[in-house]
Design a protein around this nucleic acid. Sequence first.
DNA 1: TTGTATGCGTTATCAT
DNA 2: ATGATAACGCATACAA
Lengths: 319, 319
Amino acid sequence: MTNIKDLAKMAGVSVTTVSRVLNNHPYVSKEKRNAVLAAIKESNYEQNINAVHLSKGKTQMIGVVLPFSDHPYFALLLKGIAKQALENNYKLVLFQTDYMESRELEALQMLKQKQIDSLIICSRTCEWSVIQEYLSYGTIVLCEDTKGKEVSSTFVNQYKIFKEALAFLYKKGHQRIGYCIGRKTGPSSQLRANAYKEFLSEHQLPYCEEYIIDHCNYFEDAKIVMDHLLQMDNRPTALIVTSDQVAAGIVIYCQKQGIKIPEELAIIGYHNESIAKLMEISTMEIPLLEMGKNLFQQAISKEITKEEMFFRFIERTTV
Amino acid sequence: MTNIKDLAKMAGVSVTTVSRVLNNHPYVSKEKRNAVLAAIKESNYEQNINAVHLSKGKTQMIGVVLPFSDHPYFALLLKGIAKQALENNYKLVLFQTDYMESRELEALQMLKQKQIDSLIICSRTCEWSVIQEYLSYGTIVLCEDTKGKEVSSTFVNQYKIFKEALAFLYKKGHQRIGYCIGRKTGPSSQLRANAYKEFLSEHQLPYCEEYIIDHCNYFEDAKIVMDHLLQMDNRPTALIVTSDQVAAGIVIYCQKQGIKIPEELAIIGYHNESIAKLMEISTMEIPLLEMGKNLFQQAISKEITKEEMFFRFIERTTV
DNA sequence: TTGTATGCGTTATCAT
DNA sequence: ATGATAACGCATACAA
């Protein structure tokens, strides 16, 4: 492996000069520049990027924390981030956490160790207080409403979305409304739970634990939902499902079981994933690609900003 | 930021000793070790990983090249890779190429620059000859049958899979068989095209350009397929679709259009994605998670190995 | 068991 | 415009 020193020798100049042409700095004569260029070509030279990183104290790499990459929500978010990273000449380091705190900590650790310049946490498991400790080591960006906190974030108003879905269903005459979520803990679910409880008390409806179904992430989780529903005495007439993928699964199951949608069970999905368009599932559209782009921009920006993205209810045939 | 030198001073030892306790080397007395540990705690010290990388010449990072992360095929592959990376304490750098050669070259470049120790190329765009040039800079792993070449690979026999799907359909009485692929170029499609042509000539069937539909990656691409199909005079009676996601889209479209499956159109999907189970789509199962794991292991292994994974036809209701 | 000295490959500072 | 040389922070061969 030839290095910058070798180049200097070959070209008959100093390492400084070599570094200058390598980094397109001014103040280097045409002759010397050409000499260096020739040496580079001849030696098949390549920068050792780790040395550059050490010297500069930056890596042009950004970490992305997400629970799993094979879920449309995160896959789309990631796609948006990746697109923007590419345009800005940054690399992405992926942390797939499965919602395990230890893995999120690893990512935070890498920020502290300077292996990544910033960290985008698409869905956090750690308490806010632990994330806070790492704020001084680099930019951290979250995908939730961070209110007065000292971090940038791009988010949608999960509370409002849920409220709107509930209101729509109520207006359609539904009184027994259930919902499916990915995990009970986590900031979004918290907001949804609040919205749900408020909705119930506003309309003096009873709270029914059974109506909340956890661990709904993939198509196949629809089976759990349906099994759960079918054994209930007084099952909900409508379901808010926080992922179109799961909503699609439920629709298909209902077809098999002969349960009419929306007459016997109304469904509102989330995100407006492509399956929702295809299957004509009513859904709360969330601009995931845009959010991904935004998250990335915030990751490389010096300023702390909070950007709320807009959602939109799309009425189709399942409600 | 306190560094190893500061620690040494604080603990009253040499940097070497500090380095030793940092790396859990033997030959350091309890007292000194404790002194160092205390200094670490007190100073809130953290290794600068870039310096470690430079010094060691390795980064414990592995690159992953794939066209897009929001496609079940690649998302699943990635999930398998990520799982294994985690267990082996490696980090993943993601290269989303959109099938653009320049982006694949960037990844190759990073290998050359030593930013990553190895590179896993899930789907390549570059010619083999250009990849070959980078072999000396680190381990490269491919996801295709690499025959006699000097690279490790984990793959399924795309030729055989396609042949088997065709044979099955033929046995069922189909003579006009079309197929949908993600892109016409690329190693897999080449093999499929060969299998297809051989199949046709074996059974003295006519080759019909129209029967091959390109750019089928997502649910929504099913629309293109159907539009294409519906305007044909003599459309195929069966379709091999190299992604269950697209297959699912086609099934749904057919339901809407009143086209009976499998009577009017038989369908064989690929991968046995979860949507295929749910919708009871016949499919060629491919162990993507396993392949991902395998790819990773090969990436960190010294030896060059080729591992063919087994596929399996799962007959359900669409054929 | 411990420490000294050197190397890793760059960039940045400061002369000239 | 050019070049010595000092960082950057750590690992390690070698010496003791």
